[in-house]
């Protein structure tokens, strides 16, 4: 951590760019949808990163928070026709409560066992939400006619949530909490010897992390108008992808997960659309495969992720350019 200005000019620039983006270009609804998904993944990746990358608690069950947030918007609507928009209030809070309850169980575990514990917890929720039809309508899911046809309002909402998530991380990492998170990540024993109550601060980290994941979940229901347990509690498509977004961008960096989210969505759409129609159709089935390869590559060669190892990347590119120039 350093003492450079809390928010740099380029960061303000990025935010303003994201804010005016829809006014500059006349995007098709397809592109608008992609932008929204990028932001959604910024939130999930950044929130996972706070708990895993900064606090060292590698959660494999982030879908639990996303899912519970989505159902916090969905269940009151399903049962009582309460507007899903209340989810933006309840989603985060419900996820925090779940996080606290889960913490009682999973924070007794360390390292890979923590990972498995969170994974198991999220899976149990997925199964339970599929079974308890009286509450969740089971596998039929909950359907709601979305408020607006235009995607732009949703873009601004998820942009605000994403900004909130990143800002949370930035603020926290300059405070006692942030230093304690990092200490716990680096060495829990050393941390306790300097007076850090590790379980308290793990809970705080989990609370902040789950809040934003829950908000993302609530937003998802409001925006998509449909949820079912297999989608919002998905092990692979939510929990694992949250991790991979963080890894590719760079764990323990502020902007890593955001970059990871952009890379992930871009890659996915490039392949899914078979390079926007320029490549043969069969390529479209390869998006997850290529993403998996990218993950392997990053873990092997860029363990700090694109942001964390940016200097390394620059150096490599630079050297290459130099040697090419010599030729």
């Amino acid at each position: 951590m350093h003492n450079d200005k809390f928010i740099s000019k380029s960061e303000i620039g990025i935010f303003i760019f994201a804010l005016v983006l829809p006014f500059i270009f006349d995007f098709s609804p397809y592109i608008q949808g992609l932008l929204i998904f990028v932001m959604l993944w910024v939130v999930l990746g950044t929130s996972w990163n706070l708990l895993a990358g900064y606090t060292g608690q590698v959660s494999f069950g982030h879908a639990a928070f996303f899912g519970i947030g989505a159902y916090a918007a969905g269940v009151p609507f399903f049962l009582f026709k309460v507007s899903p928009w209340w989810g933006l209030l309840f989603g985060g809070i419900t996820a925090v409560i779940l996080g606290y309850l889960l913490g009682i169980v999973v924070f007794r575990l360390r390292g890979p066992y923590f990972a498995l514990g969170t994974l198991a917890a999220a899976e149990i929720l997925r199964i339970a939400f599929g079974q308890e039809e009286w509450l969740t309508n089971g596998h039929n899911g909950i359907l709601y006619i979305t408020t607006w046809v235009s995607k732009y309002p949703y873009y601004f909402i998820i942009l605000a949530i994403a900004a909130g998530t990143i800002l949370t991380v930035k603020v926290v990492m300059r405070r006692r909490e942030g230093y304690y998170f990092l200490s716990i990540r680096e060495d829990e024993d050393a941390a306790s010897a300097i007076g850090i109550n590790a379980s308290k601060y793990k809970n705080i980290s989990m609370g902040l992390s789950s809040f934003w994941a829950g908000m993302a979940g609530a937003f998802y229901f409001i925006y998509m108008g449909f949820i079912d347990p297999e989608t919002v509690f998905a092990l692979h498509n939510i929990s694992i992808i949250s991790i991979l977004v963080g890894i590719i961008g760079g764990v323990g960096t502020i902007w890593g997960p955001a970059i990871g989210a952009i890379i992930m969505v871009l890659l996915q759409e490039t392949f899914r659309s078979a390079f926007f129609g320029f490549a043969p159709q069969w390529v479209s089935g390869m998006h997850a495969f290529v993403f998996g390869l990218l993950v392997i590559f990053v873990i092997l060669y860029l363990p700090g992720g694109v942001v964390g190892d940016w200097d390394l990347i620059k150096k490599k590119l630079h050297l290459k350019r130099k040697s090419e120039m010599k030729k």
Binding site: E186, D187, G195
Partner: peptide, 22 residues
């Protein structure tokens, strides 16, 4: 600690910061 336990990826100053926050 006899077998030292630095917070490895933090700077020396940040190691001390973390302790100072106590």
């Amino acid at each position: 600690f006899q077998v030292v336990k630095p917070l490895k990826r933090l700077s020396v100053a940040d190691n001390i910061m973390a302790a100072a926050f106590s």
